[in-house]
Simulated scan of single mutants.
Amino acid sequence: MRTNKTIKNRGAVSNPEGRFENEKREIFHDGWDIDAFDNEPLPALETILLEERAKSIINRNDSPDIGFDQSINPYRGCEHGCIYCYARPSHAYMNLSPGLDFETKIFYKADAAKLLEKEISKANYTCKPIVIGANTDPYQPAESKLKITRSILEIACQYQHPVAIITKSSLIERDRDLLSKLAEKKLIKVAVTITTLSVELKKILEPRASAPQGRLRVIRGLSELGIPVRVMAAPMIPMINDIELEHILESAKNAGANYAGYTFIRLPYEVKDLFKEWLKTHFPQRAEHVMSLIKQMRGGKEYDSTFGKRMRGEGEFADLLAIRFKLACKRLKLNCVPSAELATHHFIKPQGVDKKQLLLDL
């Protein structure tokens, strides 16, 4: 359903039906009292937390352009409301909208820790680093209450299992006690995403994510704990935040990051329409130019999911962005030393978990 009005602290401008729905709805005004209708503010949207009973918790990945094999996503949907989020289309599988529903109807995996303990106890399980938050942020606002990510880290500490975390939230500072224990045995890496250093742009681009200075504080604090920290300048959006690339990298380096990466904006499925709607709302003068540059980096299309191209794009603009990133990293001495592999030899396989679970089920 489309409203064409913005809602405070929400990223999407509308709540369109998912691609699997047969019917579409649209607000219709009968023409009476037009001024009142146009000026009437939209009510604030409440976040609804929904429990998801998962049968397994570890996702396996075989994509050649993603550098990990295993991941865990404690939440489906994300309150941060980042308009560019490539995970938005997953809400269509729940018969919900990738628009405002994605930001306001959050599914949480209450038994994540128990499922993880059970899965890593299996005889055929091979210990490999698990990335927490590859799809949606594991430290989104709901985590402050539910503490599901923290419960996963407790299992990682108990059984000495290596993990990596991707976040743009300062809430990660809450778990310094667990992170420091993991760091002692080289069992933890963290990637902090910084999309922009502009507070004003952050408010409309990723409305409920932590402020840029808060993320730099996270980088500084984690680095002081001896945790390898990577800054992700992501996603880069032409004519929106790409001009900030070098400044983001420099600020992160000064805060203690020694590694860096970047990605180009991805617009799969419904995300492309949501993003274009966002552009017309917030940057109407440059909306067409932004989309033109994105198409140039996608072989004339709005999105190309081809492995090797989807993260970085192609063409002159993409090549220039890659050169700028390389030169900035060289000047700032980022990525000078290969990131050390997380330790796996400390892993302690849980014993008797399946038997314990059977007794609980009985």
Rank of each mutant, 00 (worst) to 15 (best):
M311Y: 08
K280R: 15
V229K: 09
E206N: 07
K109A: 02
M291C: 06
V199A: 14
G308E: 03
P141F: 09
L245K: 06
T167F: 08
Y269D: 11
D242M: 07
L362G: 10
T263N: 09
A260L: 05
A87W: 01
L201T: 03
E143N: 03
K122W: 14
V192Q: 02
Y75V: 12
K301V: 04
I265H: 01
E79N: 09
D137C: 09
K5P: 01
K280S: 14
L358S: 14
G315M: 10
A322F: 03
K301F: 13
G11S: 05
I120K: 11
Q160G: 14
F37S: 00
I265P: 00
S14M: 04
H29I: 03
K202L: 04
K301L: 12
P98C: 12
K114S: 12
H161L: 14
M94E: 12
D101N: 12
K168G: 10
L359N: 00
V190G: 04
E224I: 10
G214Y: 06
Q351F: 12
P212L: 11
A142D: 01
E288L: 00
P228I: 15
F102V: 02
M297V: 14
E314K: 08
I120G: 08
L178W: 14
V353Q: 03
I194H: 06
K114F: 13
C336E: 15
I155M: 04
V131P: 01
F20S: 11
F20K: 13
T136K: 07
G352T: 02
R331P: 01
M239Q: 11
D137P: 03
E23M: 13
A209L: 04
A44R: 09
K118S: 14
Q285V: 11
W32P: 00
E46L: 12
I66D: 05
P74Q: 15
Y159K: 14
E173L: 15
I204S: 00
E119P: 04
S56F: 13
A340W: 11
T281K: 13
A252I: 08
L279W: 07
I204K: 02
V337K: 15
E250F: 07
A112Q: 03
Q285S: 14
L146Y: 13
D111E: 09
L358R: 13
A322M: 06
I152L: 15
T136I: 07
K253G: 03
